[in-house]
Computed example of a mutant assay.
Amino acid sequence: MSHNEAKEHTPGRLNELFTDPYRAFENDTDERQLHIRIMLHMLLARPMTRGQMTLRVIHGWENGGCEPEDLQHVDYTLDGVPDFKRAVQDFEHASKHNTPLPADNSAILAAPLANAIADAEAEGQDLTNDIRETPARWPAFEGGLALYTLFKMYHRLIYGEDDTYRCTQCVTPLGMREIHEFHLEEGEFALLVPPAEHFMGKESLLVLHESQLGPIEQLLEESLPLFDNF
């Protein structure tokens, strides 16, 4: 296991903007709404204008379930609010007509987990069923710490979290990313952005559960236009 795969509660891009990012978004913080809008402008709007943002909508886990193979997702190119609205419309249409929710064929958690387990076994590592089936034990094999970190992010985005904000560094299929995770009154989502030295040239990802499409649509509509004339 490599501890370089993931580190939780690390400094990130928001430390360049706020003295204490972990306090910046709490309900009793002065200028909280301004902090949210500045964060969205820097971490979301600017990468969108450069064509570097993807929206990932997740679903499939419910009633406490969290089997990797049950986690589904669909990705959308996100160049602006109209692209986000298209995702909202797709999910609303599926719900209205009682059809399956949009989903890509690729398994964002189960497939890389299976690959990491296969690689570990090819290296001669003996992995028990308990290690395979218990996310907290995935760090026992190479790549497992990153997968466990992403598993926890998905779990919090679906089932909730008490902390309003956290920052994690984690190796992802896109490379090393800062995971800026938000659990706000306005909605819950995560922004996976490149570290500072690669921020202008690498891809970013906005991840949220399908139940958050409506709230985040409203947040983006209210927030993103504010900086258009600056």
Score class of each variant (00 low, 15 high):
residue 54 T to L: 10
residue 208 L to Y: 00
residue 113 L to S: 08
residue 154 Y to S: 11
residue 112 P to D: 09
residue 105 N to M: 13
residue 108 I to W: 02
residue 209 H to L: 12
residue 44 L to Q: 07
residue 223 S to N: 10
residue 89 Q to E: 09
residue 152 K to W: 03
residue 12 G to V: 02
residue 165 Y to I: 05
residue 196 A to S: 12
residue 110 A to V: 04
residue 33 Q to C: 09
residue 44 L to D: 08
residue 224 L to F: 00
residue 123 E to K: 00
residue 160 G to Q: 10
residue 36 I to M: 14
residue 62 E to L: 03
residue 173 P to R: 07
residue 71 L to Y: 01
residue 9 H to A: 11
residue 162 D to Q: 14
residue 186 E to L: 15
residue 38 I to V: 15
residue 102 P to H: 12
residue 41 H to A: 15
residue 16 E to Y: 06
residue 63 N to L: 08
residue 156 R to N: 15
residue 72 Q to N: 12
residue 88 V to Q: 09
residue 18 F to R: 03
residue 3 H to G: 13
residue 45 A to S: 15
residue 172 T to I: 10
residue 220 L to I: 05
residue 157 L to W: 00
residue 42 M to H: 09
residue 211 S to D: 10
residue 9 H to T: 03
residue 53 M to C: 13
residue 17 L to S: 00
residue 79 D to Y: 02
residue 157 L to I: 07
residue 66 C to G: 13
residue 223 S to E: 06
residue 151 F to N: 13
residue 42 M to E: 14
residue 91 F to W: 07
residue 68 P to H: 02
residue 194 P to S: 05
residue 139 P to F: 14
residue 174 L to N: 01
residue 15 N to S: 11
residue 142 E to P: 00
residue 154 Y to A: 09
residue 69 E to S: 09
residue 18 F to A: 10
residue 2 S to G: 11
residue 153 M to F: 11
residue 168 T to D: 15
residue 14 L to T: 03
residue 84 F to E: 05
residue 190 A to D: 01
residue 12 G to E: 01
residue 223 S to F: 06
residue 117 I to R: 03
residue 199 F to K: 01
residue 55 L to Q: 04
residue 92 E to Y: 00
residue 208 L to I: 07
residue 222 E to Y: 03
residue 27 N to G: 04
residue 223 S to V: 11
residue 9 H to F: 10
residue 65 G to H: 04
residue 102 P to C: 15
residue 15 N to Q: 11
residue 141 F to T: 01
residue 230 F to I: 12
residue 76 Y to F: 09
residue 14 L to M: 08
residue 217 E to S: 12
residue 64 G to I: 11
residue 32 R to P: 08
residue 42 M to F: 12
residue 129 N to A: 08
residue 183 H to S: 08
residue 162 D to W: 06
